[in-house]
């Protein structure tokens, strides 16, 4: 079994830690070796939250620059910022819905054009899958389900050694009971949308 390395980047509050927890549980349930590392000290203060997940025999829990096989970005500019983690064949999945940082509001920086972000990622990596996860989450019935939409998109690539059913089961088991239906709907919408753009 080869090692597959996944980086998930998000802005605090977007729920990427829950998404990675679901993946970890799905791997555990199917006996796929899994390790994860996260930096979450500032999760609730609007900073960048990053999780690294390593599936397979490797022991390290962190991912060096240039070594991520998949990058999932919950916010387009943060996806671009994390590009250093990628190599020429990395599959990148990004939400296209921007969350402008406050430094832009105060005029300390300029948010890049979404088209430019996509072009740069497409040019440098193996494949780019884009979707408007916010719109799909809303369609599923909860704007907070962006994480589940992106999880669906990720699983649709089949790059992770995780069976579809085990991920759905983990969503059912590990997310709050009241949200399971919405979460699964969001997951399916992401899965289908990524299949179309891919």
């Amino acid at each position: 079994m080869e090692t597959t390395r996944l980086i998930i980047v998000a802005v605090g509050g977007q729920g990427n830690l829950l998404a990675s927890k679901v993946l970890g549980e799905a791997a555990l349930a199917t006996d796929i070796p899994v390790k994860m590392s996260e930096i979450h000290g500032m999760a609730q203060r609007g900073g960048v939250v990053e999780s690294s997940m390593v599936f397979g025999p490797a022991q390290s829990t962190i991912i060096s620059d240039g070594k991520a096989d998949i990058l999932v970005g919950f916010e387009p500019m943060e996806t671009l910022r994390a590009l250093g983690k990628c190599h020429g064949k990395t599959i990148v999945i990004t939400n296209l819905s921007p969350l402008s940082p406050f430094t832009v509001t105060t005029g300390q920086g300029v948010y890049p054009e979404i088209r430019e972000i996509q072009n740069l990622i497409r040019e440098k990596t193996g494949k780019l899958i884009t979707l408007n996860a916010n719109a799909l989450a809303e369609k599923a019935g909860n704007t907070m389900a962006v994480n589940m939409v992106l999880l669906g998109a990720l699983i649709s690539t089949r790059v992770l050694p995780l069976p579809l059913e085990s991920v759905k089961q983990a969503i059912a088991d590990k997310t709050r009971k009241a949200f399971v239906d919405v979460n699964l709907r969001a997951f399916n919408l992401g899965y289908e949308a990524a299949g179309k753009t891919g």
């Binding site: 240039g66 671009l80 990628c86």
Partner: peptide, 21 residues
């Protein structure tokens, strides 16, 4: 060989420091 993407043409991205809620 260490594969590293050439990111020299990336625009300067605005920082996203943590902030007071």
């Amino acid at each position: 060989a260490r594969e590293r993407l050439d990111l020299t043409d990336l625009p300067k991205l605005p920082q996203r420091p943590p902030s007071l809620c």
